[in-house]
């Protein structure tokens, strides 16, 4: 992290950061908004990383154990940067571990896509496809933001996620154009996760204020580019992008699936068993 000695304590408010009060009421300080946003991104990475950890030693090949653990490792790395920053911004002084291991389920704000339970390898590939294409676009946009720390993170994360995207692209092609069985499973995988993809691009008041102030970009405008890219890859795999009749929402507000509780319980179990522990 770059900390020049005489930098202002809060480098996140660029010049024109006039608090734009959208929809009336008293708008929270930009720091609080940014903390909410970074927590969402961090929770996405943490929860998806946790789901991928569940594959390790269970993957179709040892090579795939290695590939999935590589991706999980990068995601946990992203979560650490994002949660750490969110904790510094939200005024509570919570560390990355406080945020990961002591919040109750309702305070996690990951998109539901990232928490969907297991399923077969095709479900994982479908989710990786949706997430990585979104994350590359979003982190590339973040790399252009005025906050030097976040911009540097965005640039690094975009590169890492681009490799994860190659992994997803490679697998959807192999499953889609492999055997009739794998094509069917891949199609079911896409159908399973697609209703959960819209939430990645949702924009609420927090996001609108951050975008309007130029603090960080909104994901909403990236959706057409995402649609184009995933449609192209899915088509190459001989499949079609599902057109779900419904769209899942709630994760950003802490309203999760029932399967989320056990995931968080597992994540936090050791940490919670040893109050005051140091690790």
């Amino acid at each position: 992290m770059t900390t020049t000695s005489d930098a202002p304590a809060n480098p996140t408010t660029p010049g024109p950061a006039v608090v734009a009060a959208v929809g009336g009421g008293t708008a929270p300080a930009p720091d609080a908004d940014l903390a909410v946003h970074l927590l969402r991104l961090g929770d996405d990475a943490l929860v998806l990383g946790q789901r991928l950890c569940q594959w390790i030693t269970r993957a179709p090949t040892v090579e795939e154990d290695l590939a999935l653990s590589n991706i999980a490792l990068d995601l946990i790395g992203h979560a650490r940067v994002l949660l750490d920053r969110a904790g510094r911004l939200d005024g509570t002084g919570r560390t990355e571990d406080d945020l990961a291991f002591t919040r109750p389920e309702r305070e996690f704000t990951n998109a539901l896509l990232t928490e969907l339970p297991g399923g077969d390898f095709a479900v994982t590939v479908a989710r990786q496809l949706a997430y990585t294409h979104y994350a590359v676009l979003y982190y590339e946009a973040l790399a252009g933001c005025a906050d030097a720390e976040l911009a540097a993170f965005g640039a690094r994360a975009a590169k890492e996620v681009a490799f994860h995207r190659l992994h997803a692209d490679r697998w959807i092609l192999r499953l889609g154009r492999g055997t009739p069985k794998s094509a069917r499973r891949m199609r079911l995988g896409l159908e399973r996760v697609w209703p959960y993809t819209g939430e990645l691009f949702d924009e609420d008041d927090v996001m609108r204020r951050l975008a309007a102030s130029g603090t960080v970009p909104s994901p909403a405008p990236l959706r057409p580019a995402w649609e184009r890219r995933v449609t192209e890859v899915v088509a190459r795999a001989g499949l079609t992008v599902p057109a779900p009749s419904w769209s899942a929402r709630g994760g950003r507000d802490g309203l999760h699936t029932e399967e989320f509780g056990p995931l968080i319980a597992e994540l936090q179990s050791v940490h919670r068993q040893f109050p005051g522990g140091t690790w």
């Binding site: 946790q50 653990s69 490792l73 946990i76 571990d97 050791v270 040893f274 690790w279």
Partner: peptide
């Protein structure tokens, strides 16, 4: 224990280790 590591640092270290074993 990958899903239960008690800190994010330890989780990263353990993933890297299990990965080395693969």
């Amino acid at each position: 224990w990958l899903t239960r590591a008690p800190s994010l640092h330890r989780k990263s270290v353990l993933i890297a280790k299990v990965q080395d074993e693969a």
